[in-house]
Design a protein around this nucleic acid. Sequence first.
DNA 1: ATGAAAGCGCTAACAA
DNA 2: TTGTTAGCGCTTTCAT
Lengths: 341, 341
Amino acid sequence: MESEGERAGRPATLADIAMRAGVATSTASRALSNPGRVNAATRERIERVAAELGYSPNSQARALTSGRTGAIAVLVSDVTNPFYFGIIRGTQRQLKASGYSQLLIDTEESDQNEDALLHRLRSSFDGAILSASRLSDRALAELAAELPLVAINRQTRGVPSVVIDTPGGIVQAVGHLVSLGHHEIAYVSGPETSWSNESRWRAFVKATAAHGVTGKRLGPFSPRQRAGAAAADAALNAGVTAVIAFNDLLAIGMLQHLASRGVRVPHDLSIVGCDDIFGADFCNPPLTTLTAPIEQAGRLAVTLLLARLDPRSAPSARQAAVLPTYLTVRSSTGRSPGPRA
Amino acid sequence: MESEGERAGRPATLADIAMRAGVATSTASRALSNPGRVNAATRERIERVAAELGYSPNSQARALTSGRTGAIAVLVSDVTNPFYFGIIRGTQRQLKASGYSQLLIDTEESDQNEDALLHRLRSSFDGAILSASRLSDRALAELAAELPLVAINRQTRGVPSVVIDTPGGIVQAVGHLVSLGHHEIAYVSGPETSWSNESRWRAFVKATAAHGVTGKRLGPFSPRQRAGAAAADAALNAGVTAVIAFNDLLAIGMLQHLASRGVRVPHDLSIVGCDDIFGADFCNPPLTTLTAPIEQAGRLAVTLLLARLDPRSAPSARQAAVLPTYLTVRSSTGRSPGPRA
DNA sequence: ATGAAAGCGCTAACAA
DNA sequence: TTGTTAGCGCTTTCAT
């Protein structure tokens, strides 16, 4: 388990190997990274020496000549948000399986940060995965032209993406609520700069209209647990019997605040979340939500990105993948208490 | 927001700037990274040109000469575990504030992975933060001699560390349970290769002995929510009236399984978790747990690491920092039902 | 199949 | 204060 033979503590270089194996550094390089273009016997010798010396290539030096770093940047808008844990988990695993490493970057919900960091670190990664980009369509498209990237939950012309079809799930959720007798439903909005938020809202509008029920919009609220208190009060105030929240974090925050106010869920108010994050199954009551294949989205984004990094792959590979979502009914939704005052 | 003036799509280099500013590249280099050692007027001119060209230094090239990459590796044993979310959040924020970037590495609970990845990526980072290392004391100490690192929740001679004093909290937790009338308490063990697990167990043994109550050991269990089912059954079987679980994940899993079996918490069995992860406050019932300053531990680890990376800092800075923990009583603990059969 | 040599973009002596 | 000159470790022509 211990790397042996490092001289004087300094990691072995290709030159060290070449010297010890009695070949030129170029041969050593070829043997290690381009086997087949070198005599089998010498290659074997070189490999043996490399192993003896515990050699591992200096990725910086390699990157300098080859232009490839072996790292992928993963941008999240808020490391604090459990939704991104799923993304990070998915990307981490898939990247690792492909021999890449992951540069994790938090943009803190700022498009300025997003653009600046991406440019500043440009030479440190081969491609980027933007989950929940806050960039404008135009800025995003320009960026996509400059560097290989895949967006998650963001559909923009010219930008390869993986989108989770939560809007499709919203339709199911509205149907579910209507079937429970709800006629006044509200959508608890997240950040208005979020593409996901707006597409969920549009789906909500269509679905409520199709069912002939009232669909209100509350918010915007910060997509955090804490904001659930304000959201809950707003919902109570709006006189609706059910809400669909932008995400589970907000929904869970609402649950907590409602409990403290003595409002019973789902008896007095039904709540549906989005994403099915960690905790949605064990909160009180367990949350009815739209289960999103978050981790899978992360994995798929990596797959798409690595495919376009590979020069052998078809130039115009699949541009946009859509992942389905489904309604998981737990205990936060129930029959309508009937119209309120 | 768009970087202007890049020639032919290729990012501007120092040579480009030097040429346009009519100076040598070394002067340009100095002006940008060592201001003060260059004439104010020329520096200004160089800076202006750099801005015009949207210059950003190639970190690979810089790393090659300077030996510094500006990246820190953060190793977690399982990206899936919410405990590490706190760590990642803390490191991410502190690193970002210091202008460093974060390389996130999942070791998947394997010491082999840990060692191999660290060596393979050695040239890609300036230092590493090992949260929950699975390495042996000897391997860890050797590693610490080779590269700058800080361990979290791991105390080993010669290895700078940040440890969260959960064992100290265990003493409080035992006291809390005893004061509620519990005489038969079990510790629900996590992985035996975990340093944290063993030190928590030792504290548990001491504390139960000091109070003259029975302290059993259950497990080991995988530190996951799923393992809570087996742990819950084991606890029921052991005839104890209260348990302290290795971590909240396990405790929450137990809560779920007990609910499905109709066992009431805390009426029939009291449960204490460790860490106070996301979700511990809204599970059902809300979990009594040892609140750990997880994010702060991540931040502090970064601070210690960057300090030892800084040549100006005292050579033997603080080696081990201990962060206190405190008992957060919620609703999963209550009076003992009296001794069981 | 292999070696010699150039150069990626940058920093760091050393001169001037 | 500034310029000249070597490299850092690697890949990649171009010869041989």
